[in-house]
Design a protein around this nucleic acid. Structure first.
Length: 572
RNA sequence: GGCGAGGUAGCUCAGUUGGUUAGAGCACACGACUCAUAAUCGUGGGGUCGGGGGUUCGAGUCCCCCCCUCGCCA
């Protein structure tokens, strides 16, 4: 039994996420967590809301609420929706938690002790119209590197160069558009990433099994232009983690907070601490996941995220961990995703384009979305959601192939033998062939799952469902029963056991349907079929079951065109 | 116009370090079956891998040029 720590990129507190966000991190992370639990491994699956920074302040102001109230409310909203999608976090934390405050301050203190923090008195942009210092991303201007005219103050979207706001040429406020900006003197802390560049580069180079998408982005940031730069980690804001050196005051930093990108990844650790505290456990309970000196040396740590998050997870956060000089767990594998497009364009939070998580759940149960999104996950390239494809995939895969298998075998048994596994007959060559095929396919499924090849795993699972229909079709118990009831009984017993197998194997993808299948079978044995022959013999002769309701209703053409119309515009 | 990402069967996509007749699912056609959510199973048609050069014994897979699409920005 292995121990695996899984984190999903933490969604920003500001608003409900769309399906593209969901499939880019939380959902595949959940798939992986559920699979590993199903195999009997010990899993810690962590997510949280990312709550600090100016966008939260502005959204709260717009909602007419104090920022603390706004964040608490939106956290609960996101938590409920995550539950709606059956995301099986062990803990869904908050980056504004006391635990994260303490840990963020702790890391800053350690980094300072190790000479990795510099205090820089710099000139920062203050907007008189907005009456505030403008954070990096709220200043637009021309990129000094490539001449792109709408570069943001933190990064040029055009050339991906990391920037500081004062690098921009012709800056203006992105909040008001005002140009009455003035530069004021303010002191900030910088993380001296340049001193860690060689260690980071060597570490990235050692990750030869990482996806190209992950390492190529990391290397680009390490080596492009002047290479990795020192990074400001504090801001002149009110909402955030107050700057402190561990538990000590930090002279000259009064009234300032840490930059959101400094404290957000630390929340992965803090959320695990939140989990332990919520469970009434000692610190050792979470430290054994994160401290290699306190039990985490045998933990495998896997992160899931969209490609836009890769630089922070391959460089900034590891710099924090390494720079602390303490034995914190570094990530072992980063699974990154491309973007999901919506019907010919992009999903867009700012434009309200596409289907959002709450809307999705209002029209269909989570399994439908989970199946489609995971079986079409944007792993190797951006992929596309269309309503036609969604309808076709769901109807064919879930209703026709899996749902109908369950339906046909349970109803056949009820009609011919009653609602219990019938006695008689012995396994023959057809069952031996089925067992062999299932073994091969389950192995392929496991291999894909362990490699986090999501689409491939979905295809293998589907092939397993098809194998059941093939077996039934060839065995034809509805014909056999006319001359050999014992033989028909064997086929039915094997098929009903196969249904249980499907429930177990499918659970990571479609947990509700799996639960419904198991409930219909009156079974609570979720053991993974390491031995397929034994796995097909779990439900004994005489075991009673019930015919379940239709597992998956088909999506009608009327529903499809209705939703297509309803979600064609922008969200109001 | 700038930058970025792509162009493989009607649709959504796979195609490992270049190597035998380019694959899957859906859709379509035909056949089988009738237990089942008009479901299932089998067979088949269908692609000059955007175009043109080049490297190579051999390129969807490497290099160059061009065309087109999408995104962001002007």
């Amino acid at each position: 039994m292995a121990r695996i720590l899984i984190t999903s990129a933490i969604p920003y507190i500001n608003g409900i996420k769309h399906l593209g966000n969901l499939v880019g991190s939380q959902l595949p992370a959940d798939l992986y967590a559920r699979y590993l639990r199903g195999r009997g491994h010990e899993v810690m699956f962590i997510c949280a809301t990312d709550e600090h920074g100016t966008p939260a302040e502005l959204a709260a102001a717009k909602a007419g609420e104090p920022v603390e109230t706004y964040c608490a409310r939106m956290h609960q909203v996101q938590k409920d929706i995550a539950q709606g999608f059956r995301l099986s976090f062990d803990h869904f934390g908050r980056s504004s938690s006391p635990q994260n405050h303490a840990l963020t301050q702790h890391f800053a203190g350690k980094l300072a002790e190790n000479g990795l923090i510099s205090e820089v008195s710099e000139k920062q942009v203050f907007c008189k119209t907005d009456n505030r210092f403008l954070p990096d991303r709220y200043i637009t201007g021309t990129c000094p590197e490539c001449g792109y005219e709408s570069a943001r103050g933190d990064q040029c979207e055009n050339c991906t160069k990391q920037l500081d706001p004062t690098d921009l040429i012709n800056p203006r406020s992105a909040i008001s558009g005002a140009t009455d900006l003035e530069v004021r003197e303010t002191k900030h802390l910088y993380l001296r990433q340049t001193l860690l560049k060689d260690r980071l580069a060597a570490w990235i180079d050692s990750k030869t099994d990482w996806p190209i998408l992950t390492t190529s982005i990391a290397k680009k940031w390490l080596n492009d232009g002047d290479g990795l730069q020192d990074r400001g980690i504090t801001r002149d804001l009110h909402w955030g983690v107050p700057v402190r050196k561990g538990t000590e005051d930090w002279p000259g930093m009064e009234g300032k907070v840490f930059y959101v990108w400094f404290d957000a990844p630390i929340e992965y650790i803090a959320a695990t601490a939140e989990w332990a505290n919520a469970q009434g456990l000692e610190d050792a309970a979470w430290q054994r996941w994160w401290r290699t000196d306190l039990g985490a040396d045998d933990v495998r740590y896997v992160q899931f995220m969209g490609k836009d998050n890769v630089p922070f997870h391959t460089l900034s956060f590891p710099a924090t961990i390494m720079g602390s000089g303490e034995p914190w767990k570094l990530v072992d594998y980063i699974k990154s995703f491309n973007y999901l497009n919506y019907d010919g364009g992009q999903f867009s939070t700012s434009q309200g384009r596409g289907v959002f998580m709450d809307q999705a759940l209002s029209i269909l149960p989570p399994d439908y979305w989970r199946w489609w999104l995971l079986s079409h996950a944007p792993e190797s390239a951006d992929s596309e959601f269309t309503w036609e494809n969604f309808q076709a995939s769901v109807n064919k895969d879930l209703a026709d192939v899996l749902g109908n298998f369950v339906s046909r075998i349970t109803k056949f048994c009820r009609a011919k033998f009653g609602e219990a596994l019938p006695a008689g007959g012995t396994l023959g060559p057809a069952e031996a062939a089925l067992t062999a095929e299932l073994s091969t396919r389950i192995h392929a499924y496991e291999t894909a799952m362990e490699a986090m090849e999501v689409r491939k795993a979905a295809a293998e699972l589907r092939a397993l469902w098809v194998a059941g229909n093939e077996y039934l079709q060839a065995a034809a118990p509805w014909s056999v029963i006319k001359t050999d009831a014992d033989q028909a009984a064997v086929i039915v017993r094997v098929s009903l056991n196969l249904m249980r197998l499907y429930a177990v194997l499918s659970r990571p993808f479609i947990p509700d349907a799996s639960a419904a299948m198991m409930q219909a079978l009156g079974c609570t044995d979720w053991d993974w079929p390491d031995d397929v022959a034994a796995g097909l013999n779990v439900l004994p002769i005489g075991h009673e079951f019930a015919v379940a309701d239709v597992l998956f209703e088909k999506i009608t053409d009327e529903q499809r065109s209705d939703w297509q119309a309803r979600f064609s515009g922008v969200r109001s």
